[in-house]
């Protein structure tokens, strides 16, 4: 659909290198913050609210997410970029509905995972982070989870690239694994910034672990390990249902889907050629 412009200059290799550097820095900021928080947590949680950990968690994860957005956003083709608001709206409409009800799930990543499957890991990561940033205009409590959302988008894109959406039964498995990683990474945010979870049902699960004497981070991590894998398995399944229900013409509009043969039922080389001939 989008072709390289003939009249406008294309980005230089130096700019590409700078973006690569920003991407790596963003990933390092998120990973470093997580490792620091997990190593330092035992002494800190009883230190009272607003302890240094909350600020480190907030700033480290946010800086990482913003760096990722800055690195990825300018490289996306316009056809992917216009899909990001659509994904954000799907996240918000479906997530706002489930978030406060009595189900220990969130389902707030359907749009992000959809973009990741159609347009790849980089677009998925940018959508996840942007989704949290824009959503925070309505609900500021989702802002700290930007890094976790970016990770979910990136992992969903990688799963799609390696063919996990080609078989219908593999999609929930990929979602389950993504949920484990995403939940473990987001748990310190819930523990240090919020001192708990924002939903009632998830709060009840955390309480159960706390009553057995777990530390707050351990209890929230265990809760995340119960809720998140199931949640992401449901989300990945719903996205698989959606993607296969889209007409072939719409699916093949996306170069990522064509190039990596993300979905079953089309030969890579032949349909890529046919689609570029018709699409660009």
């Amino acid at each position: 659909m989008s072709s390289p412009s003939l009249t406008l200059e294309s980005p230089t290799p130096a700019a590409a290198r700078k973006r690569r550097l920003l991407e790596i820095l963003g990933a390092l900021a998120i990973a470093g913050t997580y490792i620091y928080l997990v190593l330092n947590q035992p002494a800190d949680i009883t230190g009272g609210p607003g302890s240094a950990s909350a600020l480190i968690a907030l700033s480290g994860f946010l800086v990482g997410a913003v760096l990722l957005v800055v690195a990825v956003l300018p490289t996306l083709p316009v056809s992917t970029l216009v899909l990001i608001p659509v994904a954000l709206v799907l996240n918000i409409v479906l997530g706002q509905f489930v978030g406060s009800t009595l189900v220990p799930f969130y389902l707030d990543a359907i749009g992000t995972v959809l973009i990741a499957v159609l347009a790849g890991p980089a677009a998925g990561a940018a959508t996840g982070a942007l989704s949290s940033i824009v959503w925070s205009f309505f609900n500021p409590t989702v802002l700290p989870f930007a890094a976790g959302a970016a990770l979910i988008g990136c992992l969903a894109g990688l799963a799609a690239r390696h063919g996990l959406f080609r078989r219908f039964y593999l999609a929930p498995v990929a979602g389950f694994l993504t949920g484990i990683i995403g939940g473990v990474v987001s748990a310190p945010i819930a523990a240090f910034v919020f001192g708990g979870t924002s939903g009632l049902a998830t709060g009840a699960i955390v309480s159960a672990f706390r009553s057995m004497g777990d530390s707050l981070l351990a209890a929230i991590t265990k809760q995340a390990l119960i809720s998140d894998p199931m949640d992401k398995a449901i989300v990945f399944t719903l996205v698989a249902v959606l993607v296969y229900a889209l007409p072939r013409r719409t699916r093949l509009q996306f170069p990522f889907v064509r190039r990596h043969r993300v979905l079953t039922g089309q030969a890579a080389g032949q349909s890529a050629g046919a689609a570029t001939g018709q699409g660009s």
Partner: peptide, 16 residues
């Protein structure tokens, strides 16, 4: 929901 969850969680279960 956030405040209710916090009070439920820490009000009833705070091993420390």
């Amino acid at each position: 929901p956030l405040v209710a969850s916090l009070f439920f969680l820490h009000g009833l279960f705070f091993p420390e």
